[in-house]
Amino acid sequence: MNAIEVKNLQRVYRAHIGVIKRSIKEVMAVEDISFEIKSGELFGLLGPNGAGKTTTVKMLATLLIPTKGTATILGYDVVKDANEVRKHIGFIFGGERGLYWRLSGIDNLRYFASLYSVEPEVSKKRIPYLLEMVGLKDRGNERVEGYSRGMKQRLHVARTLLHDPEILFLDEPTIGLDPVGARDFRLVIRNLQSEQKTILLTTHYMFEADSLCQRVAVIDKGIIVALDSPSELKKHVADLSVIEIETFGTSDEIVERLRALSFVDSLHIEEQDQRQMLLIQTARGAEAVPDVMNSLNGTRVGRVIVREPTLEDAYVRLVGGHV
């Protein structure tokens, strides 16, 4: 049975610009997407910034009205039956906002339990259980303003689970967390998965989607460019190898020269301080390294690795290397 059904969903944002001569600017955030999520499935939505992930989640969470198309949650329409949908869903949007910082963690939970109409005798038992589950048992009485970012994220999870919803929308929940915090958070998601919750997870982190999601939709410029299991998506790049080259001070001219090489399928650059990591996808594998090194022409080079492609490489290829 499908818990979520999305058909030809579209969302256009309209912004008024100009002071004297006012005009309306339209931005197509989601152009036309359709997918279904089975009950109990952990479904990933991947895409670069501005691809339409958060907009999609907000439409499903009844917080935005779609411009076109329909979406149903457990058979309820997200526009016409918004109130019924809200009883069955929980949502987290990445970041620290959305909590009352001058209240304690427990007061935040008590407040939201009341808004979800959780009976007081139920919330009295559920709040300590959830605080323990997210590792905040000993900090529940402290004000949220003193929490770390990871603690706030975990409190968001507890808030989302107060009314024990069947469906969860987690929009980039690990963004900004340190590696240990992110790992702990992924454990929480796994626990939720084992409780047969239906989860829609959006993330930038491929290994997160790879290790957690049963199916993944790759969204780019408001449309779904691929939808499959992580292992099937990796087959998109099965014929390729990835050359990782650490460089210092690569110019735009050199990048363009590399992109122009006939055997380069795609080139993605990860910048970190003075360092650039060039990720070149090619069918020639290690044989391509000498030609690539020639093209780098005097650029200071660190380590060079040739490896098998990952889900991230499949994703880079699907969205055309512009992440």
Partner: peptide, 18 residues
């Protein structure tokens, strides 16, 4: 401004009650 409005609108309790 404090980012809690979405959480309040997204609950089943009518907003005017809140």
């Amino acid at each position: 401004w404090q980012g809690t409005l979405e959480s309040l609108v997204g609950v089943p309790t009518p907003f005017d009650v809140i």
